[in-house]
Amino acid sequence: MPRLTLRKVNAFTTGGVAATGNPAAVCLLDAALLGSMPDSLRQSIAADIGLSETAYVEPLDAASSPGPDVFKQLDTFRLRWFTPAAEVPLCGHATLASAATLFTECGNPAPTLHFHTLSGILSVTRQQHGQQQLLRMSLPLSTATDPLPPQLQPPASCSPAAAAAAAAGNADPADPSGDNAAAFSQLFAESPRLTELLYTALSALPSSAAAVPAAPDGAAAAADKAAWLSHVVQHVGYVAPLKYMLVALQPALQLGRQGLEALALDAVALEAAGSADYMGGLIVSTLPSTGEAGGYDFHSRFFGPWLGVPEDPVTGSAHAVLAPYYAAVLRKQQLFARQCSARGGDVWMDAAAQPGRVLVSGEAAMEQTWEAEY
């Protein structure tokens, strides 16, 4: 049975405070350990640890890279991520946590680390941002413009407006008025499974906040739920490779950070309203309310009960989806955002520095190191 050294690292912290951000477990696997770490054991360990992700870092060529010093000497590694339920194709915060472990715990002097992953090669560079030491990741840019999955599509006999909205989301997210708003309203009216999924997620929005209309009762007719959603939702988009759905709330609701933090979503009900066949995560986002402090460009939360993650505290991969959307909405490429989970965290983005990529940056703080035998 292998004896492993595991580290808990908080990524995307607020001001470097360890109790904020998103915790990930990081496990470094040298040549001596790789032979005793089948995928089934990696998954079992991730489930036992119970964090949203456990990252496994290993040399690309274990045979030619013996010994524990490999993690100090090399700048290129293989990286895999496991939730408590499954291996996932992309995880930003566990990538940040892995780089922080190599830089700070292993003393790796490389200016940039490169990770071979299921989403291609991801690079992480140290970056000074004023008084803050950030880690900057280059992630694949993911535009939420894929067709909705077949299970959430309206019927073939639907209206042209609903079909257009389901096929590619809002063609111009910077202009959600007029025909675009009408198309989403029609989509909700004609796609009952999508309506039920979004109603389940959003019906707990605080109706006491500003202009949020009270949600209809859960037993209400689908048409009533669809009508309510048309007042609450500005945009719906889908990223097929990640199975992520992006929902942007109407700015007129004036929810801001406080309102989004107050969303008391039922993750069990949300899981039942969708399926892991087509849902990997639901991103709910909003603009700041008028006069809100903090300097943030937008706020978000991420829910992934279909992969064993009821809510992810801060999600790097989600910001590779959010960045291009809000870059279009706000007409700016450098963005600063807050993910409004209970732990919360800050994320910096550059949507234009590299073609087809998003630079996603944040702080990281080491919290705990322990050994365990599996």
Results as ranks from 00 to 15, higher is better:
V70K: 03
D69G: 03
G130H: 11
D61I: 13
V57D: 02
S65G: 04
D75A: 14
T76K: 10
Q153W: 01
V57S: 04
A85L: 13
G130N: 11
P68Y: 06
H129S: 11
S119P: 07
P89C: 13
S138V: 01
T117I: 09
F77G: 00
R80Q: 12
Y56T: 04
L79G: 00
A99I: 04
S123A: 15
F103G: 07
S64A: 13
T104R: 15
P59W: 01
A63W: 02
P140N: 11
P154N: 05
S142A: 15
Q133D: 14
P111I: 14
G107N: 13
P150E: 11
A94N: 08
T104N: 14
D146C: 10
L113D: 02
L102C: 10
P66M: 04
A97Y: 01
T83G: 05
S98K: 02
A63H: 08
E105A: 15
A97Q: 02
A63F: 03
L152A: 01
A110D: 06
A97W: 01
M137T: 06
W81A: 02
F71Q: 02
H116E: 14
L60N: 08
P68H: 08
G120D: 09
D146E: 09
A62F: 02
G130R: 09
A110Y: 12
L139H: 01
P154D: 01
A100M: 07
F103Q: 05
Q133M: 10
S142K: 14
S142P: 03
V124F: 03
P84Y: 06
A85M: 13
P66N: 04
P140K: 09
L74T: 02
A144Y: 02
T104P: 04
H116S: 14
F71M: 08
A100E: 09
S142G: 09
L102Q: 04
L118A: 15
P84Q: 08
L152N: 00
Q127M: 14
F115R: 00
L152T: 00
L74Y: 07
A63C: 04
A62T: 10
A144G: 07
P154I: 00
S119M: 06
R136Q: 12
L141A: 15
P150H: 11
L113R: 01
T125Y: 06
T143W: 09
T112K: 09
R80S: 12
P140G: 07
S138I: 00
Q153C: 13
W81G: 00
S119E: 05
P150S: 12
T95K: 03
T117S: 11
T101F: 03
P149V: 04
D146H: 15
A94R: 01
W81Q: 02
D69Q: 13
L134R: 12
R136V: 10
Q151H: 12
T95P: 02
T104A: 15
Q133A: 14
A110W: 11
S98D: 07
H114D: 07
R78H: 12
T145S: 13
T101E: 11
T104I: 12
P68L: 05
T117D: 05
N108G: 10
Y56H: 06
L148F: 05
H116V: 15
A97C: 08
T112W: 06
T125V: 13
R78D: 14
G107D: 10
F103D: 07
A110L: 12
Q127T: 15
P109C: 10
Q131L: 13
L134W: 15
A100Q: 09
L102R: 03
P89S: 12
A62H: 06
A99E: 04
R126F: 06
